[in-house]
């Protein structure tokens, strides 16, 4: 599903050059559950942004479902993001003036899906994520766990093949964090490819494939039997 070869990304900070990604080679199959761990500044988030087409590598090749992404223009990249990739962020990134339901609907709305079809599609997701009752609340009326569930709803409403989560439990207490983790793992069980960037060892060790990054390079890439 994903093929990354010889990808580099450098930032210039002051007068020093930082290798955020150093010669990354990765192959990810559909339905994998991957955690990416490593110290701050090791390039985890840069990797996630690059895989999510939010950022462009300096060189190398990245193919997503057989499409070479380095030759695409911004609009084509936007379309791929819309149709194939879901994002879950640490800070939720909900739109404050929209209700939970509307936030979940947002990708459909941007895609021009009529309101009635949107409502049908969203109702099932809200139900499944256990936030149906909170659907008409604004984000600031929701708890952190509920907010993240809304964000997850939004990330899967377009039925993407790849779900990228950047510290999804970073702002949550342990109970809400566990609930969110479970939701993500259930989605993975249903076939979505799940990649979680995390600091949290206990979370990272739940994944069947664990990538460890140091100084922008893949230091370890191990596969385990699914714990659960």
């Amino acid at each position: 599903m994903i093929e990354v070869s010889g990808v580099n990304k450098t930032f210039i900070l002051g007068d020093s050059t930082v290798h955020a990604l150093a010669d990354i080679n990765l192959r990810i199959e559909q339905g994998e559950y991957i955690s990416v761990m490593g110290p701050s500044g090791s390039g985890k988030s840069t990797l996630l942004n690059m895989l999510g087409l939010l950022d462009r590598p300096d060189n190398g090749r990245y193919s997503l479902n057989g499409v070479d992404t380095q030759t695409l223009d911004e609009n084509e990249r936007a379309r791929l993001r819309r149709e194939q990739i879901g994002f879950v962020f640490q800070a939720y990134h909900l739109i404050a003036r929209l209700t939970a339901r509307e936030n979940v609907e947002m990708p459909l709305m941007l895609a021009g899906v009529p309101a009635r079809e949107r409502h049908e599609a969203v109702a099932g997701i809200l139900d499944r994520l256990g936030i149906a009752k909170r659907a008409d609340h604004l984000p600031n009326q929701l708890s952190g766990g509920e907010r993240q569930r809304v964000a997850i709803g939004r990330s899967i409403v377009m039925k993407p093949a790849l779900l990228l989560a950047d510290e999804p439990t970073g702002n949550l207490d342990s109970r809400s964090g566990a609930e969110v983790t479970e939701i993500l793992e259930n989605l993975n069980r249903d076939g979505i490819t799940l990649l979680i960037v995390t600091h949290d060892n206990s979370m990272g060790e739940r994944a069947s494939r664990r990538i460890r990054m140091v100084d922008g390079a893949v230091a370890a890439d191990q596969r385990f039997e699914r714990v659960v």
Binding site: E74, N75, A78, R79, R81, R82, F87, L110, M158
Partner: peptide, 11 residues
């Protein structure tokens, strides 16, 4: 940024 992540093109 969010809108772009959700797949909204520049236009």
């Amino acid at each position: 940024g969010l809108l772009k992540a959700l797949g909204a093109p520049s236009s």
